[in-house]
């Protein structure tokens, strides 16, 4: 398995990377953790002329809490995120999610930015990030723009990211300490991607659900919020019955994916089961 030839460029900073993107033109690819790109290049499904290595850009490898926001640099690896005390404290579901990606060696290389820019529908992060109301920070030569995740993900392997832009940060608000969150994943057994990934967040103070947020990865062609579940549950008592009723709406209006591991019918069913498991985990 040998990639086609390319020129290699290493960027040490975002500004260098942007400069290289300009110089290399449209046949350039950014190399982050490489766990999607390098296999695709080995299979010659992807044949870039220029590879711009951004895996060592220390200016995007960080995790910090700043101004009421949890900020995750695009270069933060899944291991960084899984182990980060900031993430574990403020958004435990995101640490749980990171710990369930691939295997330890994959987590050591794979990055938040790489996953989000690749927009594989089976990726894990989009669900918890939707729940957290994440925003994507994008830099270009002309400056920075911040887009909500909902408009960043445009479809199957498609995002709002331009060719001369770099995803530099994913940020989300820090939630009140009484907010509970979880990520529950039903794995595709071969690849260990998700068949269904369900992220949920809620307050359960006083035995009543409020501020319920739920999102799914790997169920539709892009991650989505299960707003019908959220609406059905807000204000309801924290009971199994209420949950059972609400999760029936998990895939309302969604064009559910199908593959040889899960038909539409089964994936829809598992989405409901995992919605329930996620909500039960919040109680």
């Amino acid at each position: 398995m040998i990639p086609t030839t390319f020129s290699y460029h290493r960027a040490n900073s975002v500004s260098e990377a942007l400069q290289l993107l300009r110089e290399c033109g449209e046949d350039a690819k950014l190399l982050a953790g490489g766990h999607s790109l390098i296999p695709a290049m080995k299979l010659r499904l992807n044949q870039p002329e220029h590879l711009i290595d951004i895996s060592r850009m220390s200016d995007i490898r960080y995790i910090k809490v700043e101004g009421g926001m949890l900020k995750i640099g695009a270069g933060a690896t899944h291991s960084d995120i899984a182990k980060s005390s900031d993430v574990r404290q403020h958004l435990p579901m995101l640490a749980e999610t990171a710990a369930l990606i691939g295997d330890p060696a994959v987590r050591n290389k794979g990055t938040m930015g790489g996953v989000m820019a690749h927009a594989d529908p089976a990726a894990d992060y989009p669900a918890p990030l939707l729940v957290a109301g994440a925003e994507i920070v994008i830099q270009a030569a002309g400056g920075e723009r911040v887009v909500p995740l909902t408009s960043f993900l445009t479809g199957l392997f498609e995002t709002d990211l331009g060719e001369q832009e770099i995803l530099t940060e994913v940020r989300m608000p820090v939630f009140p300490s009484n907010t509970k969150s979880t990520y529950q994943k039903f794995m595709q057994p071969a690849s260990r991607y998700a068949i269904v990934g369900c992220a949920a967040m809620a307050s359960v103070d006083g035995g009543t659900f409020s501020n319920v947020r739920m999102a799914f990865s790997s169920v539709g062609d892009k991650a989505f919020r299960a707003s019908d579940v959220e609406n059905a549950l807000n204000g309801q008592p924290c009971s199994e019955d209420a949950i059972n009723n609400a999760v029936q709406h998990a895939v309302n209006g969604v064009d559910v994916l199908s593959d040889h591991f899960a038909s539409v019918e089964y994936r829809s069913h598992v989405a409901k089961v995992y919605a329930k498991r996620a909500l039960m985990a919040l109680l």
Partner: peptide, 28 residues
């Protein structure tokens, strides 16, 4: 060919990685 099997695992700067999914130039 797919970073799945781990037969190529080595440590780079103390971290376990799959050496089939890293370019030699990246290890400079």
């Amino acid at each position: 060919d797919t970073s799945s099997c781990g037969a190529c695992m080595v440590h780079v700067d103390g971290e376990a990685i799959k050496s089939c999914t890293m370019l030699a130039v990246q290890a400079d």
